[in-house]
Design a protein around this nucleic acid. Structure first.
Lengths: 161, 161
DNA sequence: ATTATTATTGAGATTCATTAGCAATAATAG
DNA sequence: CTATTATTGCTAATGAATCTCAATAATAAT
């Protein structure tokens, strides 16, 4: 099923109303598999002359999460980052602490741990977040991270663009 | 070694200066094993008549992270949450999406996955974050989460206090 | 299709966590 | 003890995310 249809289903079930703005947002998110944040998404839309207000964008995000189209993947540089999950098999992230490169991986053991721990503590587990952080082959080779890494330093103004 | 001594070591190594404010902050953090956020910590200090400015507190947090005393555990309700890691064995978190209860658990498989994935992609892995989210026995029994869960709704004003 | 109801939009104001600027203070080296 | 300069505390600034409110538009009912 199309993400937009999936969303329509959710909207109907909840007694909400669908709008072109919301569908435009979904289209934009699903035209690539990249991770995104609110501001990036806003700019992507604006570059395509689709003027959606930031308020609407922020208001739509929780709906997309609840309908199972996207999820929040991590919080970094002072804001939330999301990725689509609808239509993609579940995966975890491996991230380079130096260059920011992200690799998606899947490992069957993760689910087994989840089941084991859930049973042990009597929890009904609905989701997990597993992120590995380290240095990618290139950055590790250059010896980055041995000396000084930048923690907590909010980079200003999206240099790489 | 005492957390404060550990911090002094770090300060010396970095050529920084130690201050009573910083030691007061460390003392307060390590007098209990509770998770905390910046504002909670500020209030705990104020209740004990230790007046540290918020600016200093925020400036100290990255130092505590870099020196290995604490780490950021999750981002929720619009702000960061931390926990001490120095002197405690590594663990992961199991969190109830309804009541917020947090259980710390350890599972040997987590490290094995980390090693396996690191080797597979040539990464030097330095840390991981593994969080399971679901419903605790009590909340699951009451059927919470089947109907409507509150996502993204920032609760105002720390009700439970 | 027309109308009534009310969810949604957009623009701007607001909130709140976090950071930055600056003058005064105090930690360290010499 | 003095000089250097990191650190503090205050306040202002920033920026993500939320809220307000009047105007608009999606749906249901006619």
């Amino acid at each position: 099923m199309d993400p937009i249809d999936k969303f329509r289903e959710y909207i109907k079930e909840k007694g909400l109303r669908n709008t072109p703005e919301r569908e435009t947002i979904i289209e934009e998110i699903f035209c690539t598999h990249d991770h995104f944040d609110a501001d990036e998404l806003f700019l992507r839309l604006r570059n395509k002359r689709r003027r959606i207000s930031k308020a609407s964008l922020y208001r739509t995000i929780p709906l997309l999460i609840e309908s199972g189209l996207i999820k929040e993947v991590y919080f970094e540089n002072g804001h939330r980052h999301y990725e689509q999950i609808y239509g993609y098999k579940h995966h975890c992230h491996l991230r380079c602490a130096n260059c920011g490169k992200i690799i998606e991986f899947a490992d069957d053991e993760v689910v087994k741990i989840q089941e084991r721990i859930g049973k042990k503590y009597g929890f009904v587990i609905t989701s997990h977040r597993f992120e590995l952080v380290g240095y990618c082959p290139q950055c590790a080779k250059r010896g980055v991270g041995r000396k000084r890494r930048q923690l907590f330093t909010k980079e200003r103004g999206k240099e790489a663009r």
